[in-house]
Amino acid sequence: MAGSVLEIKNLHVSIEGNEILKGVDLTIKGGEFHAVMGPNGTGKSTLASAIMGHPKYEITEGSVHLDGEDVLEMEVDERARAGLFLGMQYPSEISGVTTSDFLRSAINARREEGDEISLMKFIKEMDEVLDYLEIDKNMAQRYLNEGFSGGEKKRNEILQLMLLKPEIAILDEIDSGLDIDALKVVSKGINKMRDDNFGCLIITHYQRLLNYITPDFVHVMMQGRVVKSGGPELAQRLEAEGYEWIKEELGIEDETVGQKA
C-alpha cells in the first residue's frame, strides 16, 4: 500500500465554548493533493489547528485517524512523529534558536537515539533545499522566524516541510503574503514533494496558488463544514465566479462561523 491515510470524521471543534467546526469529513491519502478553499472566517485554520493539536481548540465530537491510529489521543509532538506536518498561517518567532539548529533537533526527534543525522549529511541536505527554494544560506543561521518577512516565514515553512518529509502535510495559507516569484518558488517546493507516499491538504482562500499546484480534489468550506467537493474544475469555477454561486445554491447568507454578532 502506498502512503498513509488521514481520516477525519464528523469533526466538531470549539474555541472557548464557541463551536467553530460543525462536522467535517475528509480523507486524505498518500499521493493525493487536496485543496480546502473558502472565504475568511469559515473555519479552515481551525480544521488545520485541531488536527495538529493546537492547545486552544477543543474537539467536542468526531475522530481523526492516521493509518488507523487515534490522532486525537496523541500529544502535538507525537502527531508530528507519526507523520503529520502543519505549515502554519502564522509561524511563531523563536529568539536565540537558529533555524538550522532547530531543524536538526526536529529531524533527530524522528530518529532513534544513536541514529542521529550526521552534521555533514544534515548540512548537505539543508543546503540542497535552500538552493532549491532560492533561500539565502544565511537564513539557516538566523533565529527561527525572528524578524523574517511574511514571505521568508512561508519559505521557511516549506524548507522545514522538505527536510522533515512528513507523510501528510497541511499547508495553511502558505501563499498569503507572497509575491509572484515567491509563490512560484513555494509551489515548486510543494510539487517536488509529490509522491505516492505523500498526501497534502492545501488551505487557501485564493485560487491563485492552484495555478501552480494542481489539486486532485477541491473542497469548499463554509459555516464550519465542507459544503461542496469536486475536482480541479471546481477551483477554476471559483476563480471565474467567486463564492456567491455556492452560497446561492445552498441558501447560505453568512458563510462565516463563530462570529459574535
Partner: peptide, 13 residues
C-alpha cells in the same frame, strides 16, 4: 504558542 510550534515539528515538550 512557541511550544506548540516547536512540538508540531516533532520535538518533545
Amino acid at each position: 504558542m512557541q511550544l506548540y510550534y516547536l512540538m508540531s515539528r516533532g520535538v518533545s515538550k
